[in-house]
């Protein structure tokens, strides 16, 4: 589970952000809604262990992220946080399957092909395992993103605008897929978005301004 207390951050004296406290239990989904420019990406990066906030604490399963040494934070992030980017980013030179194997390796686990196979099958893209990401359709890339976020069975899955480029039908199915898969690994799912359509799907949301 994820819990934050009185996070605030500023890049310069003139622009500062304070965020409401967030709490999200395992198997739960939390929507963080907000318009552009309110610091959604900043919050996401703080939650993901990428950006150290000026003040406040982020607890994941009882571990305070920014009290870890930077090496241990890297390792912790790899093992416990699954991140889904707005645009799908992959290592270009290697295949879909290899990207997932790399994910396992980077987080300090032993790469396991059968596990990769299971998750690719679950997301219906196992037949594309040898494709490079630029050879895949946008939908396939998004599924691969989700697969990568799940592969290490993280405690928390953070999704950055996963639906912004999708039509209503696809929006709903992607979000459902996300929710199902997060629950399958028992993770907390936090979706950071400006997409108000999602309010109709999830009742658990907070608004930031």
């Amino acid at each position: 589970m994820l819990k934050t207390t009185s996070i605030s951050h500023n890049y310069s004296a003139s622009s500062s952000f304070s965020f409401p406290d967030i709490s999200c239990n395992s198997n739960e989904t939390l929507l963080v809604l907000g318009n552009s420019g309110v610091g959604k990406t900043t919050l996401l990066h703080i939650l993901a262990g990428i950006l150290s906030p000026r003040e406040g604490e982020v607890l994941i399963d009882g571990t305070s992220l920014y009290k870890l040494s930077s090496n241990r934070l890297d390792r912790f992030r790899g093992q416990n946080i699954g991140l889904i980017f707005q645009k799908p980013h992959f290592v270009q030179s290697i295949s879909a399957e290899e990207n997932l194997l790399l994910s396992q390796k980077m987080s300090g686990q032993t790469p396991d092909k059968s596990q990769v196979k299971t998750i690719l099958e679950k997301l219906n893209i196992y037949n594309r395992k040898s494709a490079k990401n630029y050879q895949m359709s946008q939908g396939e890339q998004q599924r691969l993103s989700i697969a990568r976020a799940l592969i290490n069975k993280p405690k928390v899955i953070l999704a950055d605008e996963p639906t912004s480029a999708l039509d209503d039908d696809n929006c709903e199915s992607v979000v459902q897929l996300l929710q199902e898969q997060s629950q399958a690994v028992g993770a907390s799912l936090i979706i950071v978005t400006h997409d108000n359509r999602l309010k109709n799907i999830f009742n658990n949301y907070i608004q930031i301004n």
Binding site: A48, I50, N71, D74, R75, R77, G78, Q79, L83, H89, F90, V91, Q92, L102, S103, M106, S107, G108, R148
Partner: peptide, 18 residues
Amino acid sequence: QRKYELSLLRVLGGKPIS
């Protein structure tokens, strides 16, 4: 060209030394 890739490797748990 690979600045996202390198950041990605870090997000996935890679250390700067890697």
